[in-house]
Every structure is written in structure tokens, then in C-alpha cells.
Design a protein around this nucleic acid. Structure first.
Lengths: 190, 190
DNA sequence: GTCACTTTTTGACCTATGTCAAAGGAATCC
DNA sequence: GGATTCCTTTGACATAGGTCAAAAAGTGAC
């Protein structure tokens, strides 16, 4: 899906509005393993992923990478708190597979928010969608066994589950790599 | 803090705007233990809590109540997904202490969203604040010990932690009541 | 103040998952 | 295409926190 189509499915922008809005996004290709934002930096871009995928992660006390979220095709990727509050990012943003993204700066999106009430609406809808997904993850993580959490992952990110290193998924799900490995093994027996 | 003051600290509404907006909120007092919304119902109100507190919870497979969130003074309380998507609520909303709330219907708030871009902005800001808090909880739950999670609770809801039944807090934190009781005991020894 | 009910505490025991360590496999680089 | 590095699997063992059951402490109604 193109970004144009994606935007119009959420909010019925007119052609003129769309042209103006899209003019503020810059298309970029980003190679695998590229870091878009580092912990401590202020995240200045919101990325729409047309192709590829990414994740956000942070380093815990022991210096271990903890995946916080995966971002797939047709999603916005950013360090939300950092971007919207212009505060230092808690997370790294990393591209996991060669990607094509459209990026927009904080200043530009603020301009669009101010110019188009429909953009505010888009912002609100995207924030609420994210909130809902976060709540889903929370419920999965909070009360389910390691195996059930993995099943949640398969349901939420079917395209991603088999394409990224095991360790990234394990930390996302709050379990060790060893545990996830054992779960996959016993799943494959069935 | 009054609702007027609360709204203006987030977005600089004019006096006229405020009057119009506030006219859509209905002030109500709600006694302790009242259920505002049940699982399966569509949540038709967004509540601003001027006094008192509440929680959202659901029943798990074993029929046990699992607290999903606490709502304190000067917060909006609703079953977000149900309210905004007008879908059946996953959660019960319950008032835990006699409360004074201002409530607004979905239809009315949609009207305000359409009329005032600043309302869309308010919606976006509130959604993002909630998102940030949800992420905080998630990180606390996902990687911390039971004791650390309790400490997170004390930091996030200092006013609430000592006023609600232990079991509500334990389920919110994803641990058993027994575990939380033992943590509190060992804390009080220090 | 006593009865009934709810909430919290305590104890004994159990299990899912973590930790640590080492060996296999895969991928990448020159 | 061999060396290096990274990723995954496997095993042995440890432990935080769960489960179950009962006692103790609070709370409220009359």
C-alpha cells in the first residue's frame, strides 16, 4: 500500500490536502542494520514504512538489548515520546530489513497539525491504535505463560516472527532466548 | 483542580470555547463500588475525575478480577477502545471511592472534535500521555521482579497504593496477593 | 458486642522459567 | 572456502514466585 492510500483510508483527505501533506514527507531507502535514532538523542523524524521492518529497543542495566516494539509494513515508526515531547529517546530505532520509508520532521508535522484539523484527527487515531496494541501486549505479557506470549507474537506480527533473530523476539516477549528456543522446538514436534 | 483549569493547562482554549465545551459535560456524583460499564457493553461516556478514584478490570478465564488500570484525580477514565471505536468493552469500569466526575458522551465529544481543532489536539495529547504511561507499565511488568513492580506502582500511583484492596493492586501488577503481602511485610521491616 | 463476611497474612510445597556453560549451525568477510 | 563472528540449541541446576490451605485480622450490620 502506498502512503497516499494509507492516509486516505484513515481520514478522507482531498487531493490538494494530500499533495500538500505528502510534500512534507521525504522518501528514503534505509539499509538493514541502520540505526535511525540512538538512546539519549532526540528523535526528530516520524517514519512511515513502505517496505522493510524495524524495531525499537533499549539497553538494560546489564547492557542487554531489550526489544520494545516491532514496526512492519504500513506502520509509523518513531520513538513516540521523544518525537512528540522532543525529549531524549529511551529507545534505539533500528531497521532490521532493507527498507523504504517516508520521513517527516517534528516541525513539519506540527505545521500540518496546525493547518489541517484532519491531521490532528489522523494523529489521534494513530495514537489510539498504538495504545490499543500496547494494551494487548501488556495483557499478553502480564498473565500468560511463555508459550502463550509467543502465540500472541505470532498473531500480532505474523510476518515478522520468522524473519528476525530469536533473541530480538525473546526480549520483546520478556523471556530468555533459551526458553523461546525450547518453545519453538516443542511446537515443531506437534 | 477544576476541569476548566485542567483543560486550559493542556490547550489554550478561549473563554467562549471553554463554555461551549463544558456545556457538554455533565457533573455527577458516583458512590463507591458503582460499576460504570460492564464487560461486553459499549462504553458511551468519557469521565473526568474531579474527586475519588476508579479502576478498570476484566475477568480472566478463571473468573478472577484482573485490574487493568487505576484512574486518579484529574484524569480521564473510560474504556478507551470501546469508547472510541464504539465496540464492546473488554473491561469493567468501577468507582473505588466516592467520586465527582464530569461525563461526556461519544456523540458530544465527536461534535466537539469536529468543531474545534483544539479538541482534536487535546484528544491527541491525552492519548499520547496514556500511551506513555502504558509503555512505562509494560516495561515495569516485563522485566522487573515483583518487588520492583510494586515500587513502580508506588511511584506511579502514590495516592492510590494505600487506599485500595491488596488484591486489586496485586492483579494490576501481575502477581498474586500472597506475593504482594510478603513484599509489603518485608518492606515494613526496613 | 457478636455474627458474618471480607481481606490479609502465613506456611509448606511445587513448577515454570531463569542462569550458566558449552556445543552446533549459519552467515559474512576477505 | 576457511576463518571469524554471530545465532541457536541443549543440558544441568537454581530460584522467584505460584498454588493451596488455613489462620488471623479487619469491617460492617444489627
Amino acid at each position: 500500500m502506498t502512503i497516499t492510500k494509507f492516509l486516505t483510508t484513515l481520514v478522507p483527505f482531498t487531493g490538494d490536502e494530500l499533495n500538500d501533506i505528502l510534500a512534507h514527507f521525504k522518501k528514503e531507502s534505509v539499509p538493514k542494520n541502520q540505526i535511525l535514532v540512538r538512546q539519549g538523542e532526540i528523535c526528530n523524524s516520524l517514519y512511515y514504512i513502505e517496505q522493510g521492518m524495524g524495531r525499537s529497543y533499549y539497553l538494560n542495566e546489564n547492557g542487554k538489548e531489550i526489544t520494545q516494539w516491532f514496526f512492519g509494513i504500513n506502520k509509523f515508526m518513531t520513538s513516540a515520546d521523544s518525537f512528540f515531547q522532543q525529549s531524549p529517546s529511551i529507545y534505539y530505532l533500528e531497521i532490521l530489513e532493507d527498507a523504504i520509508v517516508y520521513n517527516i520532521s517534528k516541525a513539519d508535522i506540527d505545521q500540518l497539525f496546525a493547518k489541517y484539523p484532519k491531521m490532528e484527527k489522523l494523529g489521534r487515531l494513530v495514537a489510539i491504535e498504538m495504545l490499543t496494541k500496547m494494551v494487548n501486549k501488556l495483557n499478553a505479557i502480564q498473565f500468560q505463560t511463555a508459550r502463550e506470549r509467543y502465540e500472541y507474537m505470532l498473531a500480532e506480527f505474523p510476518d515478522i516472527a520468522y524473519q528476525v533473530p530469536l533473541g530480538h523476539i525473546a526480549s520483546y516477549l520478556g523471556m530468555t532466548q533459551e526458553t523461546l528456543s525450547r518453545i519453538r522446538k516443542s511446537d515443531s514436534r506437534k
